[in-house]
Design a protein around this nucleic acid. Structure first.
Lengths: 359, 359
DNA sequence: TCGTTTGCAGCAATCGTTTGCATTATTTTC
DNA sequence: GAAAATAATGCAAACGATTGCTGCAAACGA
């Protein structure tokens, strides 16, 4: 019954490989390989005999040899530039799990301050991942070219490239801006302002565009814009300080991201003694977990993270099996989440209200 | 001057490899290899000729072939179970940068809820990383054995294993607990409480031990303990609710982590109308970035993240070059950071006070 | 001048798989 | 019962590097 000549199991030294299994089980190396390959031609009992024995020995095919011969790595690189913005850990976590389930390995590259994703890209490609997901605001269009030369596909997450035709997955930022504008106007605010994030980011631009266009549509042509220069708490804090020095003061502020909004709210309270939302309504965009905390209870537009992740993985899978996907870009719509950082609806009835207490 | 026969540069199809360079430059493959190997014997001009041409072609040695032959991957896996606790993105970012600088690649594995790091470990080692860093509270001691069999070294980060002799890097949690206890007592608090994190985590235990022992040393033998069951905002929120139902109410609460502390403070304010620190002092441990925000201004004990990361990388480098490091464990001391969530010192002078406004 | 050292480069084996094709064993078909 | 079709396995050539050993000049010493 013993599948191998006695005593062979604890052969010393050399790490176990297919050859070792082959000898012990008296089959060829090819057969070992086929046992692990889902759709290879092999007798069922042979396969299970091999799999069992492999299990017993703790054998797994060497991924480097596999990558070498197949020219596929099943590795996805991911470049993240701003992990301090809670949106990104949330996205990272989701992507990590979804990719793992789809059988991909994730290689992480963070962008140190002072460097750009472009600087990191060559490193990221050096391990020849099949894809690189870029979760960062600034990327030159040369990036595309660099990646291509290495045979790596680039996918932008939460960012689109106006010029190039790279794959990207984003939420409908302009729609978000519009929804927030509607909400502000519906609740009686009239002096509207926007705090921008990083200046050239597509997210900054699209959210502004959606917000401003809707305001104009509804007869408010004068919308303030204050630069934040980055997507961070500090940016929101200091932008709010500059913004509130203007006269008349705005009565509603749409921040380009939740984390900016939190900084903004804090500045309003601490530095100006203003109440939110009685004196000023504040809304963000992202719907990070913290936005739901009672202390913040931030009205926001939610990025449909789950669906964005799903789309990303789908994109990867499709390109990977060679089905040159027609759908190069995904733009997914989110929802407005009304909480307590904005004035209540005049009629009394809130449109959508989500619980903001921890469950 | 042209280093290769004309027309060869844009030879079609086949991706460029060492053989291609060798032919073009009329040297052997070995020589190509040596040009890239820092301390190989090769004539300087030959090397630069090769390096220049490689650069021109965009050639880089294939990492899979390298790993295959050298049996080294320069890959470090990292298992993270709770990215929603801001401490971990901060740690992850630091580790990522430090490892990159040291020439390592980082493979990320998150632990989905409902699973344990143990479940993920086999996957993590399937790519044969040389090391796996575990940033998670729960790991069985069998993990050690599993990793060993795959030839992978395990390193615990922010966690120690009471039983096994695995490598680990942590901060001096007991010291932290003691410092907080001192601070509470020095500022006149007498009814002290502790909100625990995940029950069996070494961090939960050590912080408790340090806190309680110091209290006892200073004559307070009755210290309350409330279970939080996890390191999260929600845990702090609900634990605080249970805690405040006791009579008499505590006048100082030490939370096993910053994020717990934030939840706790919120519950005190929202649910009980208590003022922090006038009615209750609250302190955490970690010193996450958010702790410095004005709205929180949390007194805490800082994890010396930079030094912990440095130690981790040093450990990896040493083990990697075979210098079986004597120092298997690093326990590094942090500092107490006094902010406004705890009562001020009676004398008026604060010991250490850090600015809590965004810079 | 000749033997010895030294500096560089090449040869060829090796790492552990995958996979097209050839080969053998088994079954089906007429 | 022979030929043909089918199923399962084996052979051997890749994949792209690293590295111990060998070989060959040039430099050196006596």
């Amino acid at each position: 019954m013993d599948p191998k000549p006695a005593g062979k199991t604890d052969r010393p030294g050399k790490r176990i490989n297919a050859k070792r299994l082959a000898e012990d089980l008296d089959v060829s190396i090819s057969t070992i390989s086929r046992a692990f390959n889902k759709d290879a031609v092999i007798a069922p009992e042979t396969r299970s005999r091999i799999l069992d024995y492999a299990d017993q020995l703790g054998y797994r095919p060497n991924p480097y040899a596999q990558s070498l011969i197949t020219q596929k790595s099943r590795i996805v690189g991911i470049i993240v530039s701003h992990l301090e913005n809670p949106f990104y850990p949330e996205a990272l976590r989701g992507l990590s799990e979804a990719l793992r389930e789809a059988g991909w390995h994730l290689m992480l590259f963070t962008v140190p301050s002072g460097k750009t994703p472009d600087d990191i890209l060559p490193l990221a490609i050096s391990y020849q991942p099949e894809f690189v997901i870029v979760m960062a605001v600034t990327v030159s269009s040369r990036a595309q070219e660099v990646a291509e030369r290495a045979g790596t596909k680039l996918i932008y997450f939460n960012r689109r490239d106006p010029d190039s035709s790279t794959f990207y997955v984003i939420c409908d930022n302009a729609h978000g801006g519009g929804m927030i504008a509607d909400h502000f106007l519906d609740t009686g605010c009239r002096r509207l302002a926007y705090i921008a994030g990083f200046q050239n980011a597509s997210t900054t631009l699209d959210r502004w565009r959606g917000f401003r266009d809707r305001c104009i549509e509804r007869g408010i042509s004068d919308v303030w814009r204050e630069e934040g220069y980055s997507f961070s708490y500090e940016a929101g804090y200091s932008a709010a300080m500059r913004l509130m020095d203007r006269r008349p003061r705005p009565d509603a502020v749409f921040c380009a991201s939740d984390i900016i909004a939190l900084g903004c709210i804090e500045a309003l309270r601490t530095e100006f003694g203003l109440r939110v939302p009685e004196d000023v309504s504040v809304a963000g965009l992202d719907n990070i977990e913290m936005a739901a905390w009672p202390s913040h209870s931030l009205t926001t537009y939610s990025q449909p993270l789950d669906r964005m992740i799903e789309a990303t993985v789908k994109l990867i899978e499709e390109i990977s099996i060679g089905a040159e996907s027609e759908k190069v870009a995904w733009q997914i719509r989110g929802d407005i989440i009304v909480r307590k950082s904005t004035r209540p609806m005049p009629g009394g009835k809130d449109a959508v209200t989500l619980p903001d207490k921890p469950s």
